[in-house]
């Protein structure tokens, strides 16, 4: 009895007196960039000892958590409009770019074998195309043996920036989609299973024969999923590569939207990947915890400077240097503590 009492007392003592570890940065949101954020966090921790506690719960969750001030930063691939940023006192800046790819699970079809275009993808997700050997798909894939089985559709069940970009693209290429479903982080899907996060979609498609889903490219690459090629705005068939994502991003005018909120879907250019997307970080301009925000800014600055190669390894596209310079200037002018002192010194 006394042994148990002492054990209980010891654990209780540990529990209530555990010192908060060297300021872990807390963030929550998009699953789209999670693979590269995790890689950066790992390297940053090895270098500085500061950890990143990132809850990969979807862009919707990230927006909610930062608005509720339960985390230091939020991450979202659905940019907030300027009005909302001003109302909430949030600063928004893009961290990295990537591509959304359709992934399938069909016997005998290898990555890059299948070709799909926007209108067909829209019809599949509207539930109008139900079988794999539908003429619309066959037309794009002469020479590929398509089974006559039903298409098992997978989409997101949570609020997702990936969905935002995906549905934005579908609305752009399919007026039917635009009127019936529209663009947003969570939509009323006409058919299919809902999976949680890019992770959930990747897992579902990997396990379900005859399925189709959409994920950020790193998920397809890391989990050896069968991605497809796509027909872009210029009518050319492109494969999802870092070059294709970069080509789409090349024309972006980052200053054209408040908070750099530029959508890169369906960009012109022969080599452009049609579903390229950027992902943003949300921070308070006058944060309640300036120290934590300062640490977060240091991490982001480190990631811009030293994380480019790690990002490229996972086929993400780092932000161009000129934009980074602009963003960091924004930090020092906009993000301040209570006394007006900027939280980011340009000494990095």
């Amino acid at each position: 009895m006394t042994l148990m009492k002492t054990a209980l007392a010891a654990i209780a003592a540990i529990a209530t007196s555990w010192p908060v570890l060297a300021a872990d940065i807390s963030g929550a949101g998009a699953t789209f960039p999670y693979p590269v954020y995790a890689k950066w966090a790992d390297a940053y921790k090895k270098e500085t000892g500061i950890g990143l506690n990132y809850q990969s719960i979807g862009s919707g969750g990230g927006i909610k958590q930062i608005k509720a001030k339960t985390v230091t930063f939020g991450a979202s691939d659905a940019p907030l409009p300027g009005k909302e940023l001003d109302e909430s006192g949030l600063a928004q800046f893009p961290m990295v770019m990537g591509g959304i790819v359709p992934v399938v699970n069909l016997d005998g079809i290898k990555p890059g074998d299948l070709v799909i275009d926007g209108p067909t993808l829209a019809k599949i997700y509207l539930g109008e195309i139900k079988k794999w050997d539908d003429p619309a798909i066959a037309k794009l894939n002469s020479g590929v043996k398509l089974p006559s089985s039903a298409i098992a559709l997978v989409h997101r069940s949570d609020g997702s920036g990936t969905t935002y970009n995906f549905s934005y693209y579908l609305s752009d290429v399919s007026p039917d989609w635009k009127s019936k479903v529209g663009t947003n982080t969570a939509v009323q899907w006409p058919a299919g299973i809902g999976a949680k996060g890019n992770e959930g979609v990747a897992q579902n498609v990997g396990n379900t024969k005859g399925s189709i889903g959409y994920v950020e490219y790193a998920y397809a690459k890391q989990n050896k999923l069968t991605f497809t090629r796509m027909v872009n705005k210029a009518g050319k068939t492109v494969a999802p590569t870092a070059e294709a994502f970069q080509a789409a991003a090349a024309n972006a005018d980052w200053k054209s939207q408040p908070g750099y909120g530029v959508i890169l879907a369906n960009q012109p250019g022969d080599a452009s990947w049609p579903m390229t997307a950027a992902t943003w970080i949300l921070l308070y301009k006058s944060p309640a915890d300036p120290v934590a925000t300062g640490e977060a800014l240091k991490f982001f600055s480190w990631s811009y400077a030293k994380g480019a190669d790690m990002a490229k390894d996972l086929d993400y596209v780092p932000m161009p240097a000129k934009v980074v310079g602009d963003i960091q200037k924004m930090w020092s002018t906009d993000i301040k503590d209570a006394s007006g002192k900027p939280l980011f010194g340009m000494t990095h």
Partner: peptide
């Protein structure tokens, strides 16, 4: 067909409900 139950909806969506 896939569906949802009350408890599954809450478990899946609560932390992200904006």
């Amino acid at each position: 067909a896939p569906g949802t139950t009350i408890s599954a909806s809450i478990a899946n969506e609560f932390t992200e409900a904006v």
